[in-house]
């Protein structure tokens, strides 16, 4: 395995441990009354709101973790259903849907949004490739497939575009429902429609497994929960198939990744290409887990950041020509090739 990929794997495993089991490490940090006065206010559901009073153990949305220790929302996916984690609270989609339902004032949300935008601005969608626990799980599935000698399924370009539309559609539906059930007249729907995307998100079923906790994988009490349960199963099946037969196909429709992707072209992490050095071997496009081809096609000097790029830097790594593809941070070379000098580099 090459150096960048090796570093990425180590970072992924480290982040998985930190984000999933981080709560164990920081268990002493109890939430104190001063949190209200700290940098980030703790976001709480309004007292007595249905979404909270009706949530009991056994409900789909019951968070398996303890109370959040550091209330924070990283740009990558960290789940409400982490086993006793609670180091970080949830993903950005959870953040938006929850607070739309609670109708939290904008001023309380501003610190979180600032942090989110800052991180995304600096690193772009690097979260997806390097941090996201779901992506790590998927990469493990891909690893299994490779070991079993099953060839990768390469999806056509149009299919991947449609997947991102699906992701935007899901996001729009989720946020609309969250807004509607936040209105007083529709508050009685909160017990079923609270966090609609979370209920079908594969992370809800996968994240508890890391802590050897049985996820609440079925709830057939009413037709709504039945539908959500079935949808969650379908989505989980799609998720596993997407990662097992393709590579990062799922990441094209992950709403969290889509929100991150808005910052990709303006991000601090820039991927540069010098076409004069390119020998058009296609290694980069072939190795891209998202199936992007911009780095292969581009024939002008410049940045080839793409919205769907998860910045795994695999293209930079496999490029056989030194200086053709490179990573820069705000235009300054981080000389990643020198740090991770490959054996047969020039």
């Amino acid at each position: 395995m090459k150096k960048i990929t090796m570093t990425r794997r180590i970072v992924q495993v480290f982040c998985l441990i930190l984000l999933v089991y981080g709560g164990y490490i920081f268990k002493e940090w109890k939430q104190s009354p001063e949190t209200e006065q700290s940098l980030f206010p703790a976001l709480k559901a309004p007292a007595g709101s249905i979404s909270i009073t009706k949530l009991e153990k056994g409900s789909i949305l019951w968070p398996s973790g303890a109370t959040p220790v550091i209330e924070n929302y990283p740009p990558s996916l960290v789940c409400r259903f982490n086993p006793k984690g609670g180091m970080f609270k949830a993903c950005i989609l959870h953040f938006f849907s929850e607070n739309l339902t609670w109708q939290t004032q904008l001023k309380y949300l501003l610190p979180y949004i600032t942090l989110f935008i800052l991180l995304c601005f600096l690193l772009g969608r690097m979260w997806c490739g390097w941090v996201c626990p779901i992506g790590t799980t998927g990469d493990f599935l891909t690893f299994l497939r490779r070991k079993m000698n099953i060839p990768v399924k390469r999806f056509p370009h149009n299919f991947r575009i449609n997947l991102s539309f699906t992701g935007y559609g899901l996001m729009a539906i989720a946020l609309t429902i969250s807004t509607i059930i936040g209105m007083p007249n529709f508050a009685r729907y909160q017990c079923y429609w609270f966090l609609p995307y979370c209920q079908i998100c594969p992370a809800r079923l996968i994240c508890p497994l890391f802590g050897l906790i049985r996820p609440n994988w079925k709830d057939f009490s009413t037709s709504i929960t039945t539908t959500f349960t079935l949808l969650a199963w379908i989505v989980l099946g799609l998720f596993i198939a997407a990662f097992y037969f393709g590579r990062r196909v799922w990441c094209h429709m992950c709403p969290v990744g889509l929100i991150n992707s808005w910052f990709n072209k303006g991000a601090g992490v820039e991927l540069h290409k010098k076409p004069i050095k390119c020998i058009k071997c296609g290694y980069c496009a072939d190795a891209c887990p998202m199936g992007l081809t911009k780095m292969y096609e581009m024939d002008k000097d410049g940045i080839y950041n793409q919205n769907s790029c998860i910045m795994c830097l695999r293209c930079v790594e496999v490029c056989p020509r030194k200086g053709c593809l490179s990573v820069k941070f705000f235009g300054k070379g981080i000389r990643i090739k020198d740090f991770f000098r490959r054996k047969n580099a020039e």
């Binding site: 490779r146 000698n149 060839p151 990768v152 290694y283 190795a287 496999v318 056989p320 047969n344």
Partner: peptide
């Protein structure tokens, strides 16, 4: 000059 860059280490890859 070019090494074989094996990305998918399956047979077809």
């Amino acid at each position: 000059y070019n090494p074989v860059e094996i990305d998918e280490d399956t047979e077809s890859g």
